[in-house]
Write a protein that binds this DNA or RNA. Structure first.
Lengths: 350, 350
DNA sequence: TGTTAACACGAAAACGTTTTCGTTAGGAAT
DNA sequence: ATTCCTAACGAAAACGTTTTCGTGTTAACA
């Protein structure tokens, strides 16, 4: 078990100075061909690799991106990570992930742990609790200390930084448009309570679509579910609520749900009540995850292009990292990228 | 935009030496109460936090765990990560993830990037390509350099290190036992080609169960699918193959599939052919992911307890990290932990 | 022969810590 | 007055790099 070899050891072994070794390995013209060859051969033999930590300390950059997300067991977030990792790796960066688990405290702690030298910048999506409490001091402080942040999906407007979002409003409007143009008259909405911005926007998109077609929204067609019901444990409660929605509104001929799970639950409830999808009731969800693809019938849904969001976020961050050295305080001009949604039509609509 | 404050700056500002500042902040008795208070107050005011990179360099440990997995957009793997992150964080470690994307080269490159100082140890699951090529030199080298590795799920036996696996053999045997004791006579198997160990083991478990009940396996009841069909693009090909399996064997009354996707595809095919699950044909899958929970009917499946696997792996690694300083080369005694599977009975079986 | 230039290399600082080992000054003890 | 101890602090090394700035040797030139 030989420890990793260092410049110092090579220097001692070959009876030259550390500087000579370093220069020889970087093919400096200062060093004679002879010694260069000798040193490089030796280094290769012992499989020398410069120590990343020492480099980070010297260069004051770690070539590492910190990701903070609320949850990783989630198709959307893991696909975003894949996107980030893809472009990060291509540009020589590593990614280190922290999970807030939707908790404000864990978000803060995780960010503090990483902000003290471990990473060059953040890509993050805000936890639900943070959005509820509206306490954003940790974001402001990190930015103040010169560490760039890119927010995606669940962003907070009052923070000045680069952002990558999906046009939730437009995405859901298009979905509901589709239902309306398919002839649906009583379109139910299954959404979440309004803590997280995206829920609110998707709800608004639904309302906009109705209005555009001169249809007035009916309160009893809108089911607002508690976010906690997304957790696997409360599945039955969710199912009951959805079934109740159908029972108390027999005329429902379509459902728009703000996520996959609500959508497939709606399909399940419909079937349980003897309705068939899409003949009796058409269903559209949001997020093109594995549920949508493999549900029966397969689910028409609004795709957010999660991987692209990750790629864009990483590009934004890296570009800022590599350019920030230039001018200390030029105008910072933050961007907000909007990634287009796409309606993926499958068998749950006509 | 104030940069992070350092010991040196505090020292200069308060007109003391760097050592004094460092000691004062760590409440050394060497420093008088007066100066200690003054320094701590100043540090708090400027929100001083020791630089992680400098600490890593000094202590020669990074308090960071490297994870290498083939794919992150995957319920099993992301749940393992969650488990790792959970205990790692609790013990003051961070995790940095690298994706091999099932490629040998990316696996090697990723490991090399991380092995040179960035992390203290690896937790990994081998890529499919690596298993096919059976080239494990990168594992051996990392271990030789004194960096501990913990393998999970897709482990390679000839490498000497800690491992966390699931008893695939037993898990699938129990599943098939269940089908047999439910009265099924013609149990089909949908499995993968044999590159990855787990596929082979699960197949073997199926065979063992049949044998235990004196039933002889029939070749035409066993469908070996190419692994590539797991990718979303080739979904239709997969569906056709499975349908063909049913059509050419009308007597099939049960299916055991080595993963979720194959199982739900089987259910879909059965329904397409007018068969109902579980009355005409019963289905059991492997992996308790989101598909199993939300399929219609919900899928009976073998749970691998992915999160627990992650937790165990992290515990194993951290324990080795914290104890390795003791004796240089005591007997290394690697462990292989077997995480029990569990048959989760849902509506796809009677 | 003396000056200069090129060549090949080494010393040292710097990144930000922690820690070991002085060093100084003052008071107590002899 | 001398010695000794202790309290309070500083200098410096170490972790592993890279880079700037010497410095010594040799060869060429006047």
């Amino acid at each position: 078990m030989k420890r990793k070899i260092t410049l110092k050891q090579i220097a001692r072994e070959l009876d030259v100075s550390i500087s000579t070794v370093s220069k020889a390995l970087r093919n400096s013209i200062e060093i004679s061909e002879d010694t260069t060859q000798k040193i490089q051969a030796f280094a290769k033999l012992y499989n020398y690799r410069p120590n990343n930590i020492a480099l980070s300390l010297k260069n004051r950059k770690t070539k590492t991106i910190g990701i903070i997300i609320p949850e990783i067991v989630h198709y959307f977030f893991s696909k975003v990570i894949r996107g980030i990792e893809l472009v990060a790796n291509k540009k020589g960066y590593n990614v280190i992930v922290g999970l807030s688990n939707e908790s404000f405290d864990k978000e803060v702690i995780n960010m503090e742990m990483l902000a003290t030298g471990s990473i060059d910048g953040f890509i993050l999506s805000t936890s639900r609790e943070t959005l509820q409490q509206q306490d954003y001091h940790h974001f402001k402080e990190t930015i103040n200390q010169g560490m760039p942040i890119v927010m995606f999906d669940r962003v907070v407007n009052e923070i000045n930084c680069d952002k990558v979002i999906v046009d939730d409003l437009k995405g859901s409007k298009i979905a509901v448009d589709k239902l309306i143009s398919n002839g649906c008259k009583n379109i139910a909405l299954i959404t979440t309570k309004d803590y997280v911005t995206v829920g609110r926007l998707r709800t608004q998109g639904y309302l906009n679509a109705l209005e555009a077609f001169g249809m007035s929204p009916k309160a009893n067609l809108i089911l607002k579910v508690d976010d906690d019901l997304l957790s696997e444990d409360h599945l039955e409660v969710l199912e009951e609520e959805v079934e109740l929605l159908f029972k108390s509104n027999p005329k429902i001929d379509a459902v728009f749900a703000v996520n996959e799970l609500y959508a497939v639950t709606a399909m399940k409830a419909a079937r349980a009540l003897g309705l068939t999808v899409p003949d009796d009731v058409q269903v559209i969800g949001f997020s093109d995850g594995v549920l949508s693809k493999h549900a029966t019938p397969t689910l028409t849904t609004v795709s957010q292009h999660a991987q692209i969001m990750g790629e864009k976020a990483a590009e934004l961050l890296i570009e800022r990292l590599e350019n920030e050295s230039e001018d200390e305080d030029e105008v910072e001009h933050y961007q907000t990228l909007i990634v287009d949604t796409e309606l993926i039509e499958r068998d749950s609509t006509k």
